[in-house]
Amino acid sequence: MRADKDFRENTRARTETVKPLLQVREIEKRYGARIGCTGVNFDLYPGEVMGIVGESGSGKSTLLNCLAGHLEPDAGQVIFDTRADGPVDTVTMSEPERRMLSRTDWAFVHQHARDGLRTSVSAGGNIGERLMAVGDRHYGNIRERAIDWLGRVEISETRVDDRPTAFSGGMQQRLQIARNLVTGPRLVFMDEPTGGLDVSVQARLLDLLRGLVREMGLSALIVTHDLAVVRLLADRLMVMKDGHVVETGLTDQVLDDPQHAYTQLLVSSVLQV
C-alpha cells in the first residue's frame, strides 16, 4: 500500500508539468434516436489508470469503442499525444494512421479473450503478430520476446507452441494481455478484463495487471461493472448512467463518499461477504 501511495503522489506531482496523453472532448455516439453516450469529457495523463463503471447499457463499452477507434463517434474529439507529431485528433486522422496507432501505441484487451486472439495460431505466434506487423523479421528475436512475455504473464515457456484453444480461460486472458503489451504501448483499453473468470483467477489477473501497469508506466482505461476491480486498479473513476457521466473523482473518494444517487445505489449494491 505504501508504494501505491507514493505512486499516486508522484502521479499527481507529474500531472502538473506533464501534458495529458489522451484528451476526450464532447464525445457523442447515437444509435438512431437512442443515445449511446454523450457529452463525455476527460483528460488522461501518462501513467494514470481510469476506471469507467456503470450498469449494463450505460454506454461504457460504446464510449470505449469510440475512443479506441472501433466505432466512429458522431461528434467530439479524441486527442492523443502521439510520439511523432504531438497531440492529434484520432477521430479525423486517416485510417492507416489510426490502425498503425492501434498496433503500436495502443492496446485493446477484450472481455472475451477469443475476440482478441487468433485461435488457430500458437501462443508464440499470437504474441509475435504485433511485432511482425510493425516490421520485425527475425524469427529468433520474435520467439525470444514471445517467451519473455509468456513468462511475464505467468504462462510456462513450454506452452509457447500450444494453441490458445488448449488454454484455460484465465490463461487465454493473460495471453491476450501479453499479445497486446509486447510492442510497449502507452495506452491500454480494457473492456471488462476480468469478466467471466472465477474469483481466484480474477485476483491473480488483477495482481498481474497492477504489476504491469506500474512497471511499464502504462495509462489505462478500464471499463467494468465490478467495483472491486477499479478499487484495485484505478486512480480515478468515472460513473456512467444512460450514456451520461454522472460522477467523476478519485477512486477512493467516489467509492467511499458517493455524491450522485446512482453512484450511491451502485456502491450499496455490492454484496458483502
Binding site: 490502425r99 495460431v121 505466434g125 506487423a133 510493425v134 523479421r137 520467439r143
Partner: peptide, 11 residues
C-alpha cells in the same frame, strides 16, 4: 498490412 503473412511462416 502484411504482418499476418509472417505469422504463417512463424507457425
Amino acid at each position: 498490412e502484411y504482418g499476418l503473412m509472417h505469422v504463417k511462416l512463424y507457425e
